[in-house]
Design a protein around this nucleic acid. Sequence first.
DNA 1: AGAACCGCCTGCTTGC
DNA 2: TGCAAGCAGGCGGTTC
Length: 257
Amino acid sequence: MPELPEVETLNRQLQKKISGRAISATEVYDDKLTGIKNFQAGKVAGVERQGKTICIRLEDGRSIVIHLRMTGRLLWQESAERPRHSRWRAGFDKGNIFLVDPRRFATIRIERTKTEKIKNDLMADFDEKLFLAKQANRKINLKTLLMDQKALAGIGNIYACEILHRSGISPLRQAASLSIREWKMIFDSAKRILKKGIENRGTSISDWRDLYGLQGENQKELKVYGQQGKYCSTCGGTINRIKQGGRSTFYCHTCQK
DNA sequence: AGAACCGCCTGCTTGC
DNA sequence: TGCAAGCAGGCGGTTC
């Protein structure tokens, strides 16, 4: 599932590939993509990421806003021949970008004007004080809070589990029970883990691939996600798997307090 | 108001 | 081997 490091990988690749290039044509293959009907093509000014969202800025002020959700991928291909599960194509003079998405959860919409950024992206202009003021007293388990996109943009299930493990804090803790020192630990761990994820071009556990169809390398860094029953690399305890809010959480009961 | 739950989707895994 | 049920989960909408 594309989270911040995966989307940032695409963001950087797209910046290099399509900035300043004109979109010559687009095609929608899936009627479910209602946000991009009757799109009039234009020239790309730049590409940005906000949380897990990719924004392709056009010179006329419009933006193509793409969210990949669970299984969405963006694939560069010189040939205009449709890959399996493709739902949308943007054609450029030397190739095409396809939205490939087997489960059809991804969304694309056109924004007429630039929307104001919320400062909740840990790898951009994150505002710690604002975060603590809004989130630190919530009565919600910490793991679910880390995945709340309004609280922190970009963290999904994999990185939430890894961040908590590195912080040595239990996913079951209520947000309101954390000390300032523990919050600092979370911010620090999160930044390090996300940075490493970006350097490794994402985590290819299942179907994540970059713009050129290549796997990332970050799966070798995972300490808890998908590691249930194995020994914890920190303390030698056993990695547990539980459900929180209908989703799997992986953690070490011994060293995550 | 805030937290919990549901439904959208389809490929893959599991069990009989 | 084959088929059906179960599972994966981000997020918007609904319910509690």
